[in-house]
Design a protein around this nucleic acid. Structure first.
Length: 482
DNA sequence: TAGCTCGTTGGACAA
DNA sequence: TTTGTCCAACGAGCT
């Protein structure tokens, strides 16, 4: 009997999982494993919100494996040591996994592959549509601008059909094998990973979410049936369900980008045949590809600006109180506070508001974008190295295809434009619920009498003055060498 | 090769 | 109230 080891990492699904399918094709018996590596500097060292999601996602994967006669083996430690030990003890024919492209994982996987020499390690493209190493401009350089990237790749869509989920997964019983005698290879209960903090926050944060492959599939189907048509406009209104909210599922691979594309296209074979909403939605999936491509081609941009001029940007020197006020949703600017509170309460924030709070942190408070990136990474359930770094660098103006420096979002105008009736602000900043719409996004303009009894802080900064200061700060670096 | 246009998400200001 | 123009400057991609 030949044995195949399937190493799950950020691909917690059975359908459209090329590593799993290949293992079943090539081997008689499978051992599905997840290895948790929480050492400092490893990819396992993730934010609190994503840890909570990870716990539930592993649980869901285990359940769907069990339903097919298998189970997930959870181990903790260094994959570079554990995988060769397991491979040796089980005398495997192959070790199968789906590739990730962030620099930390890439480096680790390279070592793992080397350590598995002779055990038939195979990796697959599964979490992206396009292989970053092959996605280059005609002259061989990496893309830095989204539009040409999109124009050149849209013709390849919808691409292949996603793989079906295997009906049965013939599984090795660890207890009967040599591996069961080695302590470090013994299965541990999921709770031992200690991913769930002992805080009521972890429960309440997860209330709006259903985790796992089945939930992701259901959510996609619903979105395509109802919201996708209006996505182009509705996605900008934070008070309504206009976006797909698939980002955390995509991050953990509970659904693949290929599955999303295939379902959106249906029987249609070209982008031109999609309606405007669907096309914009597909474009967003390709934006995710673009972010992963950028991080693959320019790995240093995880925490350093792509545009080197920004290394010398005159950021504020002391900013802890302002940073804390921003994190807690106590800046005195309603739309900012609504967004930051939504983030803390649910692990998610509407994309329109993400741009506004990022612009405010960077351009009105002059706080380095890396601080915001770190906070998002710790609090978002969809926190993804590539998308997060690209988004923040876009807001800062230091990234690829970034917003020009003079583009400073005015949170009052953004609020009045995208939260006209104030539903979003009233939902997350209830202390303002009685303020009339005219002043809801600028309560500091209420008369002192009207302000009486209003338990809401004064704005942290004057928007006009701080905007001017930001433009002057950008002036200081714009002539220096790129 | 040179010249041209264009660039996810905006705001201020003048007319 | 609405609309047009400007706010930099550079690389990508096309002709």
């Amino acid at each position: 009997m030949s044995v195949g080891l399937v190493w799950f990492r950020q691909d917690f699904r059975l359908a459209d999982n090329p590593a799993l399918t290949a293992a079943i094709d090539q081997c008689d018996e499978i051992l599905p494993v997840y290895i948790h590596d929480s050492r400092e500097g490893t990819i396992g060292q993730i934010g609190q919100a994503t840890q909570v999601w990870l716990h539930h996602s592993l649980q869901a994967l285990h359940e769907s494996l069990t339903a097919r006669g298998s189970s997930l083996h959870v181990l903790a430690g260094d994959p570079e040591k554990i995988l060769p030990q397991l491979a040796k003890a089980l005398e495997v024919r192959g070790v199968f996994w789906n590739r990730c492209y962030d620099p930390v994982t890439l480096k680790r996987d390279k070592s793992v592959k080397k350590a598995l020499d002779g055990f038939g390690a195979q990796s697959f493209l599964a979490n992206l549509l396009f292989e970053p190493v092959k996605t280059l401009k005609a002259n061989g350089d990496p893309y830095r601008v989204f539009t040409p990237y999109w124009k050149n790749l849209m013709h390849l869509l919808p691409g292949n059909l996603p793989l079906p989920a295997p009906r049965k997964i013939p599984t090795v019983v660890l207890k009967k094998t040599a591996a069961s005698k080695i302590k470090s290879l013994q299965d541990i209960p999921l709770s031992k990973l200690e991913l769930l903090p002992e805080l009521p926050w972890a429960d309440s944060m997860m209330t709006p979410w259903a985790v796992g492959e089945a939930a992701a599939k259901k959510k996609l189907a619903r979105f395509l049936k109802t919201e996708a048509k209006h996505y182009n406009d509705a996605r900008d209104i934070p008070s309504i369900q206009g976006t797909s909210r698939l980002s955390p599922h995509l991050h953990f691979g509970e659904i693949s980008p290929l599955q999303i594309i295939a379902a959106t296209f249906g029987k249609r074979r070209s982008v031109m045949s999609l309606n405007v909403g669907e096309e914009t939605f597909v474009k967003e999936v390709v934006w995710r590809e673009f972010a992963h491509n950028l991080i693959y081609q320019f790995p240093h941009t995880i925490d350093k600006p792509l545009d080197a001029r920004f290394e010398k940007f005159p950021w504020a020197k002391k900013y802890q109180p302002q940073l804390t006020a921003w994190q807690r949703g106590q800046t005195g600017i309603p739309i900012i506070d609504a967004g930051m509170r939504e983030l803390y309460a649910t692990g998610w924030m509407h994309n329109r508001v993400r741009m506004v709070v990022a612009s405010f942190l960077i351009k009105n408070l002059l706080i380095p974008w890396q601080e915001g990136e770190r906070w998002f990474r710790d609090t978002l359930v969809d926190a993804d190295v590539a998308s997060n770094a690209m988004g923040w660098q876009w807001a800062a103006g230091s990234g690829a295809d970034a917003a020009p420096f003079f583009r400073v979002f005015n949170p009052v105008l953004q609020g009045e434009k995208f939260d006209k009736e104030g539903d979003y602000v009233r939902c997350w900043v209830p202390e303002l619920s009685s303020v009339p719409n005219k002043f809801l996004h600028k309560p500091w303009e209420l008369s002192p009498i009207e302000r009486q009894g209003l338990d809401y802080p004064a704005p942290l900064v004057d928007l006009k003055i701080s905007r001017k200061a930001a433009l002057e700060a950008f002036e200081a670096i714009k002539t220096s060498q790129k």
